[in-house]
């Protein structure tokens, strides 16, 4: 191949790294010296954390006091207990039940989520590249249409799609592939929109150079678009991950007994009469853990920045 473009990011910003580091450090100092900024940041961080902390503390309130007492009252009495977490994970519906532990649903959530993130991200990136860099008739119209589809309420699309995926047609409803396909479709508008906006900001000289060298669209996509849009892909991936992870509706409709994710038993957890409502905070807290792990894992992509993207205004 005659492509001369370097394959990865660093070379795109050939400015010397060392000087950048130095100036960054200098600037950091300047930022930190503004006490107002620091104070404001701390206040925002506190305000944003309080509800989560309150959730955690409420998760520690034993069932017998859940309805009547606030967590700080229970805390002062020294009555807080971690046993709710144990109930949720291993006993699922409180005592005297053989209902399965949530662990199976955690696993299902993973099996549902990972492909449902990969598929739309890959397909979305392909389309985003086409809309951003390949001029063709109707390009604008199609893009605007996809953009506008973001507002189509999901509920309206459920039954028509189920008919297509159902036993009379494709026959994957009630199984993992059915859930993956449904999630992929519903993720498409946002995926194309977000990725398009980042892909479009890749400096045009890079792509033009590739074209001049005779690179085809396929080659450009693999050699330039994929490496340069990794940060954008990472951001989309995390949001799609959160969306799928917290989804109940799509999984309930397109999934079945063997595929139900974590959200499903959690919604049943309170019990028919709300008798296990005290377990909901602990279950909700547990369901937050894996998304946060994923966030930490992908965070370095955010920190690395969106490279050339976003800078050309």
């Amino acid at each position: 191949m005659s492509i001369t473009m370097p394959p990865a990011g660093p070379a795109v910003t050939p400015d010397a790294e060392p000087t950048r580091k130095k100036t960054r450090a200098a600037q950091a100092k300047e930022n930190l010296t503004s006490p107002w900024a620091t104070a404001a940041a701390i206040i925002i961080a506190l305000l944003w954390t309080i509800p989560t902390v309150a959730l955690f503390m409420t998760a520690l309130v034993p069932g017998s006091r859940y309805r009547t007492d606030a967590w700080w009252t229970v805390l002062l009495d020294g009555d807080l207990t971690f046993s709710n977490f144990g109930y949720v994970l291993f006993r699922s519906f409180g005592d005297n039940s053989t209902a399965p532990p949530l662990l199976g649903n955690v696993m299902n959530s993973i099996v549902v989520t990972v492909p449902a993130v990969v598929f739309p991200v890959v397909l979305g990136l392909m389309a985003a590249y086409a809309f951003a860099w390949i001029p063709f008739k109707g390009s604008n119209f199609l893009f605007v249409m996809i953009f506008a589809l973001q507002v189509v309420p999901l509920q309206l699309a459920l039954i028509p799609l189920l008919r297509i995926l159902g036993p009379e047609n494709v026959g994957v409803a009630g199984q993992f592939p059915g859930v993956w396909i449904a999630h992929t479709i519903f993720a498409m508008p946002l995926a194309v929109f977000l990725l398009h906006n980042f892909v479009a900001q890749i400096p045009s000289d890079i792509l033009e150079a590739a074209r001049v060298d005779g690179a085809s669209h396929t080659q450009t996509f693999f050699r330039i678009i994929i490496p340069l849009s990794l940060p954008a892909v990472a951001s989309l991936a995390i949001f799609q991950f959160l969306w799928v992870w917290n989804d109940l509706l799509v999984s309930a409709v397109f999934g079945g007994n063997k595929t139900y994710p974590l959200t499903y038993p959690i919604s049943n957890l309170a019990g028919a009469y709300g008798e296990f409502a005290y377990l909901v905070p602990s279950a909700a807290f547990i369901s937050m853990i894996i998304p946060l792990i994923v966030f930490f894992a992908l965070q370095r992509y955010f920190v690395r920045g969106l490279l050339a993207g976003s800078t050309k205004g």
Binding site: P153, L154, Q155, N246, L249, T263, S267, G274
Partner: peptide, 19 residues
């Protein structure tokens, strides 16, 4: 959409009213 509680509560109402 995360309408679990919606369905849940309607259902809960049904269940509580019915059984």
């Amino acid at each position: 959409m995360h309408d679990s509680t919606e369905r849940k509560a309607t259902q809960m109402k049904r269940i509580t009213k019915v059984q």
